[in-house]
Simulated scan of single mutants.
Amino acid sequence: MKKASFFLALALSAMFFIPSISHAASQDECAIWICLPGGFPSGCGAAKSAFEDRIDDEKSPLPPFSSCAVDYDSKMSYKQGVSVYEPAKSCTGWQAWVTNCTPQPARWVKDGTCSSMMCQRRNYIDVFVDGEAAGETFYY
């Protein structure tokens, strides 16, 4: 019994003295990788809270995938950035006679630039599995 306690204490103290890769603080943080591409659907409330906490604490939105995966052959990554709002464009009045006028719905443009002081911005994240997009872009 004393021997087991000694080895447990030794292992725990080694965690504080041996430098290592920063690991995710919780399963909820690792669940962000699964829940974010789906827009945090039902059952992902704890992951969304962990995501919001990481943003509030000025950490990266997701923990390193390597700290969450165990024997996982695929590689997950993400790209984050800022998008700008582009209002809808319609062809009315004199524009209706211009042959290259194409109506466009309002949209968010990733990594766009603002041309006015009233520009609206939102952060976005795209998650990838082996380089392929996983789910829709998540805006926050």
Rank of each mutant, 00 (worst) to 15 (best):
K3D: 07
A4R: 10
F7T: 03
F7N: 12
F7G: 04
L8Y: 04
L10G: 00
A11G: 03
M15N: 13
F16R: 07
F17Q: 14
P19A: 08
S22R: 13
A25E: 05
E29R: 05
C30K: 13
W33F: 07
W33E: 11
L36R: 10
G39A: 05
A46P: 04
A46M: 12
K48P: 04
F51V: 05
E52R: 14
R54P: 00
I55P: 00
I55Y: 09
K59M: 05
P64K: 07
F65G: 04
S66A: 00
V70E: 09
D71C: 07
Y72F: 13
D73Y: 02
D73A: 12
S74D: 13
M76H: 12
Y78G: 13
Y78S: 10
G81Y: 11
V82G: 05
S83P: 05
Y85E: 03
E86T: 01
E86F: 05
P87Y: 14
C91F: 13
T92M: 03
Q95P: 00
W97T: 00
N100Q: 08
C101S: 07
T102K: 13
P103R: 11
Q104L: 10
P105Y: 06
P105E: 07
A106V: 02
W108C: 00
G112T: 07
M117S: 15
M118R: 11
Q120D: 04
N123T: 15
N123I: 04
Y124E: 11
D126H: 03
V129G: 07
G131A: 07
F138K: 05
F138L: 02
F138V: 02
Y139P: 01
